[in-house]
Nucleic acid binder design. Sequence first.
RNA 1: GCCGGUUUAGCUCAGCUGGUAGAGCGUCUGAUUUGUAAUCAGGGGGUCGGGGGUUCGAGUCCCUCAACCGGCACCA
Length: 651
Amino acid sequence: MVRVHLPDGATREIAPASTAADLAASISPSLAKRMVAAAIDGQVRDLSTPLPDGATVELIGRDDPRALELIRHDLAHVLAEAVQSLWPGTKTAIGPAIEHGFYYDFERDTPFTPEDLPVIEQRMREIIAARTPFTCEEWSRDDARAHFHAAGETYKLALLDAIPEGEPVKIYRQGEWLDLCRGPHMRTTGDAGTAFRLTRVAGAYWRGDSNNPMLSRIYGVAFADKATLDAHMTMMAEAEKRDHRRLGREMNLFHFEEVAPGSVFWHPKGWRLFQTLIGYMRDRQEQAGYVEVNSPDIMDRTLWETSGHWQNYRANMFLAETVDDREYALKPMNCPGHMLIYGQGTKSYRDLPLKLAEFGKVHRYEPSGALHGLLRVRSFTQDDAHIYCTPDQLTEECLKVNDLVLSIYRDFGFEDVRIKLSTRPENRIGSDESWDRSEAALREALDRAGHPYTIFEGEGAFYGPKLEYVLRDAIGRDWQCGTLQVDFNLPERFGTTYVAPSGEKLAPVMLHRALFGSLERFTGILIEHHAGHLPLWLAPVQAVVATVTGAADDWAAEVARTLKAAGLRVETDLRNEKIGYKVREHALAKIPVQIALGGREAEERTVTIRRRGATDTTTLSLEDAVQLLMSEAMAPAAAPNEQVSHEGMTE
RNA sequence: GCCGGUUUAGCUCAGCUGGUAGAGCGUCUGAUUUGUAAUCAGGGGGUCGGGGGUUCGAGUCCCUCAACCGGCACCA
C-alpha cells in the first residue's frame, strides 16, 4: 500500500499505482465527479497522475483558482483543434494560458480575419460539448518526430528538439487531435466550460523574435463561469471609456495630426494641466536640492559621437542637415548637454552631489507601430535630471531618488508601483567592472529601501543599468514612468572630473533620473487613472460660474474675478440657457466645482456650489467659498523630512 | 518595422450587389430670461484619408502611400 497525506492532515492508504482520480473516488464518488486536477506536493498535475508514496495530495475542483490556468490551457488546445479541423494544413506553434485567457499561434497561407472568430468559436463549443477525454501519452522522440514530420508540423519539430535529453516527450490527446504538451490538463474538453470568447487576431513572431517569420495568433479570454466573464467584458468596456485618447478629445486637452505622427498638439486646457505638473515637480525638486538648467535642442554630430549616441542610438534619432553641410541631431536625451554644463569651470568635491534638472523636450524616432496616444510618442518632455556625485555618495543618492519618486507618486494616488531592475545589455559601452559597481549600487539602494523589485537581465541602457518605475493604465497595460540609471561611462567619455580633497582630479559618477519620466505619458496615465475626473489641484478648469438668469451676470463677474484673484482657474457661463442645460454640460466636461448664481445669490451675495458627482448643492458666502476652494486646490505638500541638504550652502 | 483591421460632416456612425451622399449630437441664427444632467424653431456644413487605375459612371472594385486601431517586435 501507498500512503498519501491530505490537506486536512489526514493520511490515506491506497493501492500502489493509484492515481489522483482513484484517490478521489475512494473518498467519495461525488467528489470524484467534481475534481479536475490534483496538487501533488504543491504541483498541479493531471488526475491520472499515479501518486508516489508519502505525497501530499490536494484535489482541485473546477472553481479552484488553480484550475483557471487549466481551463485556459485546455481552451488553447480546443482552439487549435477547431482551427485545424476547419482549415486542415494549418500549422500550430504554441498555445499557452495567459492573464485573462489564452492564445494559440498558427501558420496559415491566408491569415485569419475577425470574421473567422465566430466560426472558430462555434467549432470550439462543439468540441467542448463532445466532452472528449484528455489523455497523456509518453512517446519516444523518434515516434514524435516521425509524427510531426508527417503532419508537416515544423514548429512542433522545433519545440520537440528544444526538449532537453532525458526529459520525457509528452503528448496530450483529445480524440483524434493531439499536441506536444507539458500539461497538465483536466479530464475532458467539457471541463473547459463555455465562459470564453475569442477576442482578436494578431500577428506574433515565432519565438518572439522579429527575425523569425510572423505567425497568426488568435487570442481568447476565459473564466471559470459566465458571470466572471461578463464582469471582465464590462470592465474592458469601462476601460475603453477612460482611454486617455478619447478623453483627451472629449475634454479638449490635445490632439494629433498626420503631419506630426507621435507628436502632441496641446490645447489650452491640456497645456494648463501639463504646466501644473511641471510646477509641482519644480517645487519638489527645488526642495530636494536640484538646480534647473536648459540645454539646446539641436547639437552637432560630434557631440553625439562623444556621448556614444551616434554609434548606439542613431536609428532612433531625428537628424538635421544644414545648407553648409553640417550634420546635427535633435537631442534624444538631455545628458550630453548636461555634461557640457557640468564641464564649465572646475568642480570641487564640495560641489557634489550636483543635481542638474531640465524640463527638456527630447525627440526619438520610435517605430511607427509603437506609437500610442500620449503614452508612446516621438517627442516628449522629460522631468530629467543628472546627479553628479562621488562613488561614496552613489548608493545614498540612489536611495534619495527612490524615496523622492515614490513620495511623488503617492501624491498622485499611485500607491502600487512596480520596480524593474534592468542589467547590462549586449550592446553597451564601458568596462565590466564599472557595470558591476553600477548594478550593485542600484541593488543596494533597493534593498535598503525595502521595496520589492524584479530583475530583467540584459535590458539596461547602453551606458548603464537602470531602475524603472512602472504604472499600469486603464486596461492593464504597464508603462514605464520614472527611471533611475547609474552611469560611469559618460563622465569618462567626456573627461569630466572633480577635484578630490587630496587635490587629485577624479571622474564623478553620474545618475540619470526622470520621475514622471515623460510628462506626456504621465499626463495620459493620470487622465486614465482618474477617468478624466482630475482632482481639484490638477483640473484645468477648477470651477465654472454659471448664471440662472441674466439678472445675475454682474454678480457672476464679481464672483469669478474674486476666485481668479485667489488663484483659482475659473470660467464663467453667462449663456442664455437653462441652468439644467448648463449643469449637464459642465458635468459632462468633468468640471470639479459648479457655482450657480441666480437672483437670490445676487441679492444675498452668496454662491451655490455643486460638486462633481453630487446632486445636492450648498449655499454659502463668497468669502467662505474662496477659503474653502483655495484650501482644497493646493498641490499636495511636500513631505517635511525632505530638506535641502548641505550643498545648498554653495549657492 | 511586421501581421490584421480601419479611414464618409467638428463628434458618433449609416450608405445592399458601382448610378456623382444621409442621421443624431455639436456649431450658427431667431425666439425664449430660464433654479441644478438636454427649451423650441430654422439654417449652414463633406473634393467620402492622399495619389493612381478599371469603368460610360467609383464613397463602393483594384494598386499604392499615409495616418489611426489591435497585437508582435522595439522602448536609451
